[in-house]
Every structure is written in C-alpha cells, then in structure tokens.
C-alpha cells in the first residue's frame, strides 16, 4: 500500500466511524422518542436496526486490525487508530443501550411516576453523545472536557430520578395501583435510568479517547 493509499485508508476509517455514530445517534433519538410516545412500531425499528450498528462496528474493528497489521501506525496515526477502535466499541454499546430503551417502550403503558422525567435525562445524554462525536470529528480537546463535565449533571439527574421511585415504593401507592404493575413500572424505570446513565458514561469515554487521539492526553481516561 502506498503512503498516499495509507492516508486515504485513515480518512476512510474516520468516515466509517462518523457514519456509525450517525446511526447510533439516530437509534438513540428514536429509542427516546418511542419511550416518550409509547410508540411500539418505532421501538421495533430501533431494535431491528441494532444489527446494522453491530455490523458497522465489526467492519471498523476489522479495518483497524488490518491497518495495525499492515502499516504499524505510530504517533498520531497510532493514537487515531487506537482511539477510533475504542470509540467504536463505546458507540456499539450505546447502540445496545438504545435497543434496551426501545425494548422497555414495547412493554406496555407506563402507569406510575409521572414526576420522573426520563425524557429530559434522555435529551441530555443524546446531546452528550452528539457533542462527543462532534469533538472527535473536529479534533477539539476543549469540547472533550465539556462533555466530561456534563456527566456530573447526568449522574445527579439519574440519582434524583431513582430516589423518587424508591421513595414512592417505600411509601406505597393508593389502592388503585396494583402491586404487580407498580413493580413492573418501577423496574422499567430503574433500568431506563441506569441505561441512560450508561449512555452518558460512554459519551464521556468517546470524549476521553478523542482527547487522547488529539493530544496524547489521558486526563479523561478513567
């Protein structure tokens, strides 16, 4: 492979990751919409679409492996390939979490806890993922720190939401709420909150790997 072809391969890898991130952000957006709207059809599209995200992930993994085997990239090129590979793993996991969220949307109406605003948390984490991917695309270190700083707010919102559910469970609801549906609601909400919080963590990982890629700086790597 000529040096020109090698540089073209690196550019292609970047485009592959950005294309995968578009799919993941779209899946997450649709999963959140399906939760909000209780739209089972939309949820099923998200669940079915996860296979394509997984295929993109495997393609990127293969591309990174080939570049390492055949070109032995070093310095900035090496950081780019390693960071891109790790970010693709985080994006694949976000895709899985979007599928989980869509699955919760297919499991009936929500009866309780109107005060738990999962939609707001969802919008926050979706914005984080988009900002992290934009930081990667623009190779912008300061944007990486901004994403990492937002995670504290996500953690706070998730903790508050979980607290509402726990307090309600302990206080018991009125006779109109059957114990079974209450428990199902509570479980789904816990899982939703947990998954949204994890999406935020993966967005931070994307930002951390991007910072390493751009500056060789491991400040944000846990």
């Amino acid at each position: 492979m000529s040096r020109w072809a090698y540089r073209a391969e690196l550019r292609d890898l970047r485009e592959e990751l950005l294309a995968m991130s578009d799919l993941v952000c779209e899946a997450l957006q649709r999963a959140l919409d399906s939760l909000e709207e209780r739209d089972a059809a939309l949820a099923r599209r998200v669940i079915e679409g996860d296979d394509e995200i997984n295929e993109r992930y495997l393609a990127i993994e293969g591309h990174c492996t080939e570049l390492i085997a055949r070109q032995q990239p070093v310095a900035g090129d090496m950081r780019f390939v390693v960071a891109t590979f790790k970010i693709s793993t985080d994006l694949e996991r976000i895709g899985d979490l979007a599928r989980n969220l869509a699955t919760y949307a297919t499991r009936g109406e929500r009866h309780a806890y109107p005060e738990v605003d999962a939609g707001t948390i969802g919008r926050h984490v979706l914005a984080m993922v988009r900002e992290a991917v934009a930081a990667y695309a623009a190779e912008d270190p300061s944007a990486c720190y901004t994403v990492a700083e937002r995670d504290a707010e996500i953690d706070r919102l998730c903790e508050a939401a979980s607290g509402i559910v726990v307090r309600d469970l302990l206080a018991e609801r009125g006779p109109d709420e059957s114990a079974e549906s209450l428990l199902a609601d509570a479980s789904r909400l816990f899982l939703t909150i947990r998954d949204l919080e994890r999406v935020g963590d993966h967005a931070v990982n994307v930002a951390a790997r991007t910072l390493y890629m751009v500056e060789g700086n491991d400040d944000l790597l846990a």
């Binding site: 040096r3 310095a75 900035g76």
Partner: peptide, 18 residues
C-alpha cells in the same frame, strides 16, 4: 514517547511517513 506522542511535528511527520 517518541512513538506514541512525539513533541516535535517534524518527528511526527517523519515517523508517520509524511
């Protein structure tokens, strides 16, 4: 350091083949 994150841009360009 040289092969992961060299300080000098000319070194980076040389070892990455640019």
């Amino acid at each position: 350091t040289i092969f992961e994150n060299p300080a000098n841009q000319a070194v980076e360009d040389y070892i990455t083949g640019k």
